[in-house]
Amino acid sequence: MNPIWLPVVAIQGLWLRSTLRLTLAPGGGTSGTAPGPAGTPLRLAVLGDSTAAGCGVTGDDEAFAAGFAREIAARTRRPTNWQVVGQFGATARRIRFRLVPRLGDDLDIVVLLAGANDVMAGRGPALWRDDLTGILTDLAHRTHRLVIAGIPPFTRFPSIPARLARYLGERADALDAVSREVCGRNPERTTFIGAPAGTPPPDFFGADRFHPSALGYRLWAQDVAARVIPAQ
């Protein structure tokens, strides 16, 4: 971004923090089971920030984790137990040292939803690389497969002014580039999945115009699951 616009971005950032009314209370539940017709239940976990915790919805079955578990159960035809360890405002540093230790062991899939708070906090690629590497190292002993979701594109958030969104989007792209590199070191077990392409539908965002709605989480979960376990 042209440095001449940085004062404008700073003003817009202050305006955003003073006017945005985020949905603080997570409503997505912390555990559950998606039924499947046969087989040993799969065990998956969703780890990360407010999107992992389910901010923006109120029902246990409306957030990302439950939707992702339903998709995995449908694709594998196996029951799927899910758990969530998420926290509003969590950066990769907090996830690494505070949230990862709360996960169970012997998991089949762990999905990491993180990065937006690192972008907004001004944490750059070097810090992101260090913490993401640490997270993946710790999770390697807990799960068979790791999925790193790309940072949601700020330019599509209806609550963020356009110039600020572009600035945050550039920072997010830099962190996603690091994620691709880090995940590429062990492609057999670690997968980076970028944000879905295209313009989200009008009802993708919830009441705060920042977190996904029930529809948004469902579409996001469907996209990630389709790329983790493609249809046969």
Rank of each mutant, 00 (worst) to 15 (best):
F68Y: 06
L139G: 00
V119I: 00
R75S: 05
P187W: 02
F204I: 09
A231V: 13
V46C: 01
L146Y: 07
C55V: 01
D176H: 01
P158A: 05
L47P: 02
Q222I: 13
A10D: 11
V8F: 12
A114F: 05
G134D: 10
H144N: 13
T19L: 13
D130I: 13
I4C: 12
I4T: 13
V57Y: 00
I148A: 08
F97S: 15
D131N: 08
G48A: 03
L127G: 14
A38R: 12
I4A: 14
G39L: 08
P101T: 07
I148L: 14
D106T: 14
D60S: 13
L168C: 10
A162K: 15
A172R: 01
T133G: 11
V84Q: 03
W5F: 15
F68H: 08
G122H: 05
R102H: 11
G150H: 00
L219T: 04
G115H: 02
S179L: 10
V228F: 07
G104Q: 09
D131R: 05
D173G: 01
P201Q: 12
Q222N: 14
S50Q: 07
P161F: 09
A65W: 03
A174K: 00
D106P: 09
A162T: 15
V228Y: 00
A53H: 04
P200E: 02
L103W: 01
R70K: 09
R102P: 01
V228E: 07
A177P: 02
G86Q: 00
G89M: 05
V84Y: 00
I229W: 07
A92W: 07
G36H: 04
I193F: 04
G122Y: 10
G216A: 03
M120F: 15
G29M: 06
P200A: 00
R21L: 05
D105T: 13
A140W: 12
